[in-house]
Amino acid sequence: NNDALSPAIRRLLAEWNLDASAIKGTGVGGRLTREDVEKHLAKA
C-alpha cells in the first residue's frame, strides 16, 4: 500500500524502478525503511 510509504521511500523506489511489494519492510508496522530498500538493491 503506497499510503504507508514516506515521500523519501516513494522517490527512492521510483528512482530505481522498484516495486514496493517485492521488498519486506522492517519498520514500524512493516513499513519500508531506507535500509530495507538499500539491502534489496545490494542483493540485486
Rank of each mutant, 00 (worst) to 15 (best):
L5E: 05
K24F: 09
L5S: 04
R34H: 08
V37H: 00
D19H: 07
S6L: 07
D3K: 10
L18I: 14
G30Q: 04
A42Q: 13
K24E: 12
R31E: 08
S21D: 10
T33L: 07
G27Q: 02
D3H: 11
E38A: 08
A14Q: 11
S21M: 09
K24W: 08
N2A: 13
R31V: 13
E38D: 06
A20K: 05
E15R: 15
D3P: 10
K43E: 12
R34A: 10
L12R: 02
D19V: 08
E38P: 01
L18W: 03
V28T: 10
L32F: 04
N2G: 12
R11I: 08
A42H: 09
L5Q: 08
H40C: 05
H40P: 00
A4E: 14
A20M: 06
G27V: 02
G25L: 03
R34W: 14
L12D: 00
L41V: 10
K39V: 07
N17Q: 09
A42C: 14
D36G: 00
R11E: 12
R34M: 15
K43G: 10
R10M: 10
A14I: 10
G25S: 06
L13D: 00
L12Y: 05
L5Y: 06
K43H: 10
L18K: 02
R31F: 06
G29A: 09
A20P: 14
N1W: 08
T26S: 08
A44N: 12
E35G: 08
V28Y: 10
V37F: 03
N1I: 12
G29I: 03
L32D: 00
T26I: 04
D3V: 09
D19I: 07
R11W: 13
R31T: 14
S21F: 09
L18F: 04
S6K: 03
L5K: 02
E15D: 10
S6I: 05
R10G: 04
I23L: 07
G27N: 03
G29N: 12
E15L: 15
S6R: 04
G29F: 06
R10C: 15
A22G: 06
N2M: 13
A20L: 07
L5M: 10
S21V: 07
R31N: 07
E35F: 09
L32R: 01
N2R: 11
N17P: 02
A14R: 13
R31Y: 07
K39T: 10
L13N: 00
L13H: 00
G27P: 02
K39Q: 12
G27K: 01
K39F: 09
L13F: 04
K24P: 10
A22Y: 08
N1E: 14
L5C: 11
L18G: 04
V37Y: 02
D36Y: 01
K39N: 13
L18Q: 03
L5T: 06
N2L: 12
E15V: 11
T33A: 01
K39M: 14
G30D: 04
T33K: 04
I23N: 00
T33N: 03
E35I: 08
D36S: 01
H40Y: 15
K43F: 13
T33Y: 02
N2D: 14
A8I: 10
R10T: 07
E38S: 06
A8F: 12
D36K: 01
G25E: 02
L32C: 05
D36Q: 01
A44P: 06
L5G: 04
V37P: 00
S21H: 07
T26D: 02
V37L: 08
T33Q: 04
D36T: 01
N2H: 14
G29W: 05
A4Y: 15
N1D: 15
I9A: 02
K24M: 12
L41M: 08
H40R: 03
K24L: 12
V28Q: 11
N2E: 14
E35R: 13
G25Q: 03
A4N: 14
T26R: 02
V28G: 06
L12V: 04
V37E: 00
L41Q: 04
G29L: 07
L12K: 03
N17V: 04
R11L: 11
K39D: 08
R10A: 09
S21P: 04
I9W: 05
I23M: 06
E35M: 10
S21Y: 08
L41T: 03
I23K: 00
I9G: 00
V28N: 08
T33C: 05
A14S: 08
A44R: 13
E15P: 00
R10K: 11
A8M: 10
P7Q: 13
E35K: 11
K24G: 05
V37G: 01
